[in-house]
Nucleic acid binder design. Sequence first.
DNA 1: TTGAAAGCGCTAACAG
DNA 2: CTGTTAGCGCTTTCAA
Lengths: 328, 328
Amino acid sequence: MTTPRRAPTLEDVARAAGVSRATASRVLAGTGYASPVTRDRVSAAAGRLGYTPDPAARALVRGTGVRLVTVVCGTSPAVLDDPYVDRVVGAAARFCAPHGLGVTLHWLPTRDPARLRRLAEDRGVSGLILLNTTAAVLAAVPRTLRGRVASIGVGSPVVPSFDVDNGGGTAAMVRHLYATGRRRVAMVTGPRWLACAGRSVHAYRQVMREAGLPARLVRGDFTVHRARMAAREVLARWPDTDAIVGISDATALGVMDRLRGDGVQVPGDVAVTGFDDIPLAAVATPALTTATHPVAEIAAAAANAALSGGAVRPPTVFPSRLVRRLSA
Amino acid sequence: MTTPRRAPTLEDVARAAGVSRATASRVLAGTGYASPVTRDRVSAAAGRLGYTPDPAARALVRGTGVRLVTVVCGTSPAVLDDPYVDRVVGAAARFCAPHGLGVTLHWLPTRDPARLRRLAEDRGVSGLILLNTTAAVLAAVPRTLRGRVASIGVGSPVVPSFDVDNGGGTAAMVRHLYATGRRRVAMVTGPRWLACAGRSVHAYRQVMREAGLPARLVRGDFTVHRARMAAREVLARWPDTDAIVGISDATALGVMDRLRGDGVQVPGDVAVTGFDDIPLAAVATPALTTATHPVAEIAAAAANAALSGGAVRPPTVFPSRLVRRLSA
DNA sequence: TTGAAAGCGCTAACAG
DNA sequence: CTGTTAGCGCTTTCAA
């Protein structure tokens, strides 16, 4: 009958290695000096005992928190239901696991960015990832958060940003459409308040302008439902449209669905493109031409930045690759 | 020039309320006695100061951890790439947020369930959610984890389980196919090792048997790719098949894709059904008939069980509702 | 019903 | 290079 194995503490390791707690701490936390011999002895003891530092104790004394908070800005908590948010949280949770840090998920009302202060004052928070950020939110980031916040989307001089190259990806997409003979290209965008979507729209406008073609823009909101209506609106306003660029795959799928329902051939009559390359893009009918979006990489980079602090670097832009399938 | 606002501690609250730290703690932690007057004073002070207890300090003294760990069993780390996993983590992260608890994500090799011990001994771990559990994993759950572990999928006498009613949902689906005239119904299943998928298969077998019809089973693995091949295999082995039940929406979409490519009409020649009701099921071609899967609710319930301890209750089964669309 | 005091496990000065 | 010492913020006996 053995006692229920108590998890070994630093004290146990120190004793086993025949050194003081402080020395053991220096070795294990990788801070400060220690002779090679001591180093080995401590590491060996730790390994033998299966020592894992208690993150709570560590966080308490160091004043670093114990969790990374993912904050999604939006007008209602429904923004949390987006699969994109789940991908970010999943990737962050995976990235944080080895550090013994957990991840939580919060909604931040676009109307009330001051609520960020609560999080800033919570000692449990080691860092923040902002999602769907707006300029107002960026402006509301409290001083005390500096160095431990990162944004997926737009950034600011004090908030490092990480995002896919929306502009480059969209430009490549529009050029691809042009190269394949499309001349009356429309775009279904995101909601006005979402800044990161603006880069795609801007790229679309620019390429069209360079080609001497007029822009045809209809607002969407990333939902399939809204995209269906947007598709109809496009064809009502510009019946000769021969391509529709969706701001996201969900948008493109909604557009395709409506076109099909209205007897329009894709890509015969109208080419359709998306953005994100979600798993189901490949099995849509027809298979969706889209551009990659390395969400997990981006989330990991943002988590890393929010946790490692340091100077704010210029925006990190992750390349997007065109994936040519059948819809365009 | 104000000092950078330091987060208020219990000490601050106590002083503001004119009581001792111990008393303030009793009131705020909701444990032990306190006179109504004191109670009010303390709560008021806490509110005024915007006090948030430091989860690290609390975890340290109470010995409860600071994070909920989501463990996904599988043969390779690729199991973490499943959107389903992200949904679970997202929902758990949302559920844990108010408690100041973070969530992490880990892969557990099916071959080496003993690795659970490491997590059991980590003082930072307050609870565990097991995903894609197998009997071997369940058997390897260390004693010290009891009371703070829950499974999404199959459970055991010491691990409470939470899952959608796979059996009921599948049975309803097969009956629906029967009621609409289908008699030669095949099923594309999940991988053999996944116990929870077994319930669907069992229900399918049973309904078919009751109807005096033979079972037609082909193994899949939840991927669209494998589903495509499975569809072809079904039609090769039983060319007169008039319905295919997919174990998941992804499976069903893969099946539909292949059928379409092979010139088979859906649902004209062959009806196809899925399971999960993912957002894109509604925009598939044709719109996919499927059954709901309340993943977020299930994850929240599992998180709650893993954190609140208590006696192990019988499996909690969440109902699945048939969603009739166009594919069957 | 309340306060004083001890201590959770760890790190970070500060001496040696 | 290493040990001693003093807490981090909180809960929890134990007395009063």
